[in-house]
Design a protein around this nucleic acid. Structure first.
Lengths: 128, 128
DNA sequence: CGGTATCCATTCCGATACTG
DNA sequence: CAGTATCGGAATGGATACCG
């Protein structure tokens, strides 16, 4: 429903129906790899397409390109192309808007960590 | 990818690989209607299946049942059945764990509201 | 190197109908 | 009323190939 949610909120907004603020936010980072991309761009700074792909070893070329395109369209990420010696290099960076999502993502990290610890302690994963 | 993400994090966790805390949190509420269900259960309190469905006028019976089942399995929601005069009534409430997600959801609401205002002011939606 | 298009398997989800 | 099963169309996403 990732893309579906993005389309859904965009359509709502175009119809001037703004009653979807949390869904809109969710649609910003619920795409495949999006959270991780944002997270890495924040902590590691500007990166090239291939650098990002190497970081996300399971990410498909196609999917990564698509997600970066959406992140750019949504204003969370900027693209900068450089061409030298017939070699193209594309650099991606977080925008201020993208950075402003980090507190939420950090909170999600904290919540998840605590929750997983609690479940582990409760023995729900049969780890011990 | 909603369900895919849920499966993905569950598999990772079962393999004792806990390096997916933010994805795990995301998978808690990124299912169809999940955020809205949590939001309403928090603000309106315990509700029956049909009450929830009436609130989410576009929600399918099947989808709602499935999402509530997942929310229950994830420990965010509790189910209580009551049968009187051959009539079944199922009540859903938020658990403490479910409530602990609210700050994040409220932050998502705030972020989305501000962002949509900023875009509107910038004229990106051609509203004026 | 980075981006896009095509093809195809898999998954999602709505409609419908059937149980207790 | 609440939950589940089935079916079929739609959307997702991987593999691959092909442009700049």
């Amino acid at each position: 429903m990732t893309d579906a949610l993005r389309k859904y909120t965009q359509e709502k907004i175009q119809k001037k129906d703004f009653d979807c603020a949390k869904e809109y936010t969710l649609s910003m980072f619920s795409g495949k790899y999006k959270i991780v991309i944002i997270y890495h761009l924040f902590h590691d700074g500007t990166m090239r397409f291939n650098q990002i792909q190497r970081l996300l070893d399971d990410a498909t070329h196609k999917m990564l390109a698509q997600q970066l395109k959406e992140l750019t369209a949504d204003g969370l990420v900027t693209r900068r192309e450089e061409i030298a010696n017939n070699r193209k290099a594309t650099y991606y960076s977080l925008t201020a808007t993208g950075e402003s999502l980090m507190p939420i993502i950090e909170d999600m990290f904290t919540w998840g960590t605590k929750r997983l610890e609690a479940l582990e302690l409760a023995g729900n994963f049969k780890l011990h």
